[in-house]
Every structure is written in structure tokens, then in C-alpha cells.
Nucleic acid binder design. Structure first.
Length: 488
RNA sequence: CGGGGCGUAGCGCAGUCCGGUUAGCGCACCUGUUUUGGGAACAGGGGGCCGCAGGUUCGAAUCCUGCCGCCCCGACCA
């Protein structure tokens, strides 16, 4: 393990990449824009999945799986939707390889051309709605509440590990309802699920809001979002939930017979979060010593480091603490590697973001105590061996709360208001973060502001205060402030 | 797709301008000894299609031509 990593101040991008690689979360792969998620990173993702999946099921959803490939023709059925994704699709054109007659390995067999090309799904609305057509006949078939855990591919021009990769893992919920009201309520409910998960588990405060028409999902009537603020003052869209209206029902002709024996198109939603959340997790909490993982998502809660090395008495104390932790459901590893010195281990586990380190040293043990070090603050305390497990339990809770509070404080400090364009620009340039400002409600103004400042409207907060004002760019009247920021 | 950078051991790099012994350094790895309370020291050892393909030359990591790939910054997007 290399000594030290680039500081956030020196280069935020380098810092981020080094955390990802050196903490063992992921690596660049041989394929452009695609990453290998390594065991340690995948373990954290699995914890996220487990929690989210549990909540989806508690809210009545079931999991299913749809094909990776989508016939090209499906994508042309919903005009806006195609337009949104057309530029970034991977296309399968052939189904066979053959030996190169010139002896240069294998080539695509030109005779194995597909009659209709297949698109590697960038999202599954089309294949799913094509299927729902057969599943939905009556109001009794509704609501249909399905989620799938899958990989999708979007041929992005520029990629960054976890934040934007050509292939990424996600879940996508696709639901069908009898009424508009029910579908909107579903979209809102799932946004709440995401927000609760982000705040309670990831310790990442988010702002719930609605996207402007310009930022809306291709094919949606309304897009809800949770927006988080990263340590460099840029916003990260961390989850979205869409009210799709009847667009896909009409495009794929999905009708049901209502109780009055009349045919109606169904109302739809879709919602998703992805491995991008990993990027949010990293950029919300980590520091210049490495990764910091909130206890509720940590692959490993605590690690025991024998000082200076394992031995009968230290082993005994370690076993005792491990047994007590096990009972409390706290995961712990006893690092018995005698070839590495304590200092090395301290640095290594800090890099990996293990929330609590238990140092068991000969000297301390004579006094019957061990040392607890918390990753978030670096603070060290001494506790009696018998009290260690309950102290650690408390510490994990404290760390979880502290991480959330710290992130919330950062966001509060980096949320400003601007009433004129110069101030607006200055805040974005000097301080970053969210800026609340009035906007005249037009796409043109939104685009112009983006052009001038690189900031976009992250959302119109759901609980937004109504307030008369003037658009910072055009001076036209506005009835509420919207949330601007530069974004990932 | 525009701008920049890079491809040499698992990782990080030097060597390339100006061709010439056996391609080198740090970390990691293996063996041994002494160590061990914040990234140990010494000794010995293993590991290379120098991105790929052509060319120039007595001789190419180095020069020429072509190709491929990756990263960073921007425009596009979760």
C-alpha cells in the first residue's frame, strides 16, 4: 500500500480516484469506461442493495428480471425516450465470430448479421412495457409493482469510476397503476424510500425535489430527484423517481378494463438508484487519510490490531471482545499478521475506512484496558476489556450520527441565496454549493444560466417556500426560488 | 468529439531528446536474521513480448510510419 494519497485540496479528481483504487473499491478495467468492482467495494454495494431491497419489498414490490437486449424497434416507440438515449447505445449487430482466413485471430462472421439489431439496455422501460402489455388486462391486475436489479449500458463520452461508467449496476422499479393519483403517489413514495435510505444508512443528507422540464427523464411527465452535496461543492443526483403518465402505456398499447367495463391506458412510474451511490458515499465522508464508511454500510465494523503483535494475553482479550461483538451483530476482524507492524495496520485500515479500530497492547492490558480509535474523528479512548463491546456499539452509533451531522453542516454552510446575477456567479465561483435563486421558469433562461456559469437547476425542492421575486437573469417575476449548483 | 497527458515487472516511475555491454530504481512479493505502542532494518532472491504492427540500421525501449488502448480537462448524461 502506498504511503499517503493526494489531498482533496491539491486535486479533488486525483484524490477521488486514489481512494477508489487504494481502498480496494474498484479498478479501471481493460474495457474503456468500464470498471471492475472489487470485493471490498462490492461488499458495500451489497449492503446498500440489501437495505434498499428490503424497503422495496416492505412497500409491496417484487423482483423480476427482463432481458439485457432490446429490439431496436422498441426504442422507436416513445419519441422522447429514444431521443434521450439514442446517442449512447451499444448495438449488437452480429451473433457469430469466425477464424480470420488471414490468420489474425477471430473476426465477426459477416454472414451472421442480425435481421434486427439488438440494443444493450440503457434502461428497461421499453422491454418491460412491451411485456406488461400481455400482463395487464383488467383493473384487477393492477397495481403492478415490479423491481429489477440489473446492469445497464450507456455509452458515455467521459466516464468516472462509480459516478459515470459505461456499464453500471442499478435497480429499476417499473410500476403500473389504474389512476394518475396512485402513480404520482407511488413515484413520491419511492423518492421517500431513497431519501430515507440516503440519510439513515449512507449518512448523506439529500434534498428532495422536482426536476425542471429541461432536466426531466426522457419520456417522463415529472421527474423527482434526491440531490446531495459533495465535499467539493458540486451536487450529485443520487436517485430519481419518475411519473411517466400514460406515455409508455400509449406507446406500447397497455390498456386495462376498468370496473365500468371501459378501456383505459394505465399510469406508470419508474425509479432507480445505481452504483453511483458508491461515488456519493465516498465523496460525502472520506478524507485525506482515505475512505470513511458509515457503520451501517461498512463491510467490516471494527478491526483488532494487536500491539505490537499477537500473543497469549492479547489473543485472549481479543477473543473475549470478538465474542461479545458477535453477540451484538457487529462484524470484527482480528489482524494477526505478525509481519506487519501496528503503524502500518493503522494506516491501512484508515485507508479502508473501517469505522472502529481496537488496539490491544501489552501495556494497556496490564491496566485491563484497550484502545478504541474512531475513524471519523481520529479520537482515541481507553475502555476496560469487559466494557469494550458495548462501548463499540455506542461508538458505531455515534459515528453514524456524526457523519450525517457533519455532512449536513457542510451542506448548510454551502447553501446560499442570491438575488442578482453577479452575486450568483460569485458564489458559484468562490464558494460552490447550492444557490437558491429566482428563475423565470423558462428553458431558455435555464440554458443561458448554464452556459454562463455551468450551474444547472438541480431541483425545485418539494417543500419549497413560496416567495415573490425576480429572475436573477431576466428580472421576470418568479414565485419561488429554485436550487442551482454545478453538478456531476 | 475537441484539448492535454500517458503506455517499460503487480503498482508507481527513470531511461527515449542524442540508438551501442546483461533495461534500471522505489514499493510490493519470496527466504533468513534482528525488530515491533503510528507506514521497520539489513542480507539474499524471483519476476520484463519496453502497448501492437511494419520500417530504417551491424545494432531499436530509444529514430520513422501506421494502429490500438487508457487517464485527465471540456461539451453530453445517472
Amino acid at each position: 500500500m502506498a504511503k499517503g494519497i493526494t489531498s482533496r485540496e491539491e486535486s479533488y479528481a486525483d484524490w477521488y480516484n486514489e481512494i477508489v483504487k487504494k481502498a480496494g473499491l474498484a479498478d479501471h478495467s481493460a474495457v474503456r469506461g468500464c470498471m471492475v468492482i472489487k470485493p471490498y467495494g462490492f461488499a458495500i454495494w451489497e449492503k446498500m442493495q440489501a437495505q434498499l431491497d428490503k424497503r422495496f419489498k416492505e412497500t409491496g414490490h417484487v423482483n423480476a428480471y427482463f432481458p439485457l437486449f432490446i429490439p431496436k424497434s422498441f426504442l422507436s416507440k416513445e419519441a422522447e425516450h429514444v431521443e434521450g438515449f439514442a446517442k449512447e447505445c451499444a448495438v449488437v449487430t452480429h451473433h457469430r465470430l469466425m477464424n480470420d482466413p488471414n490468420g489474425n485471430g477471430v473476426i465477426v462472421d459477416p454472414t451472421a448479421k442480425l435481421e434486427e439489431e439488438l440494443i444493450v439496455r440503457p434502461t428497461s422501460e421499453t422491454i418491460i412495457w412491451n411485456t406488461y402489455k400481455d400482463w395487464i388486462k383488467s383493473y384487477r391486475d393492477l397495481p403492478l409493482l415490479i423491481n429489477q436489479w440489473a446492469n445497464v449500458v450507456r455509452w458515455e463520452m467521459r466516464t468516472r469510476m462509480f459516478l459515470r461508467t459505461a456499464e453500471f449496476l442499478w435497480q429499476e422499479g417499473h410500476t403500473a397503476h389504474t389512476t394518475k393519483g396512485e402513480a404520482v403517489a407511488e413515484a413520491r413514495q419511492m423518492l421517500d424510500v431513497y431519501a430515507e435510505f440516503a440519510e439513515e444508512y449512507m449518512a448523506m443528507p439529500v434534498i428532495k425535489g422536482r426536476k425542471t422540464a429541461n432536466e426531466r427523464f426522457a419520456g417522463a411527465e415529472d421527474t423527482y430527484t434526491i440531490e446531495a452535496l459533495m465535499q467539493d461543492g458540486k451536487a450529485l443526483q443520487s436517485g430519481t423517481s419518475h411519473f411517466l403518465g400514460q406515455n409508455f402505456a400509449k406507446a406500447f398499447d397497455v390498456k386495462f378494463l376498468n370496473q365500468n367495463q371501459k378501456e383505459e391506458y394505465v399510469w406508470a412510474t419508474s425509479w432507480g438508484v445505481s452504483t453511483r451511490l458508491m461515488g456519493g458515499l465516498i465523496m460525502t465522508h472520506s478524507d485525506d487519510n482515505g475512505l470513511i464508511v458509515p457503520p451501517k454500510l461498512a463491510a467490516l465494523h471494527a478491526v483488532i490490531v494487536p500491539i505490537p503483535k499477537p500473543g497469549a494475553e492479547i489473543d485472549e482479550a481479543a477473543m473475549k471482545i470478538m465474542a461479545a461483538l458477535k453477540e451484538k451483530g457487529i462484524s470484527v476482524k482480528y489482524d494477526t499478521d505478525a509481519k506487519k507492524r501496528p503503524g502500518f495496520k493503522f494506516a491501512e485500515y484508515e485507508l479502508q475506512g473501517v469505522p472502529v479500530r481496537i488496539g490491544i497492547g501489552k501495556r494497556d492490558l496490564e491496566k485491563g484496558v484497550v484502545e478504541l480509535a474512531r475513524r471519523d474523528t481520529g479520537e482515541k479512548t481507553q475502555v476496560p476489556v469487559d466494557a469494550a463491546a458495548s462501548a463499540i456499539e455506542q461508538l458505531l452509533e455515534d459515528i453514524q450520527n456524526n457523519l450525517f451531522q457533519k455532512a449536513l453542516d457542510y451542506r448548510t454552510e454551502h447553501t446560499s441565496s442570491a438575488d442578482d446575477f453577479d452575486t450568483f456567479k460569485q458564489i458559484l465561483e468562490e464558494k460552490g454549493g447550492f444557490v437558491k435563486a429566482h428563475w423565470d421558469g423558462t428553458v431558455e433562461t435555464e440554458k443561458k444560466i448554464k452556459e454562463l456559469t455551468k450551474a444547472t437547476i438541480r431541483c425545485i425542492p418539494l417543500d419549497n417556500e413560496q416567495e415573490e421575486g425576480k429572475c436573477i437573469l431576466t428580472g421576470k417575476p418568479s414565485k419561488e426560488r429554485v436550487l442551482f449548483a454545478k453538478a456531476y
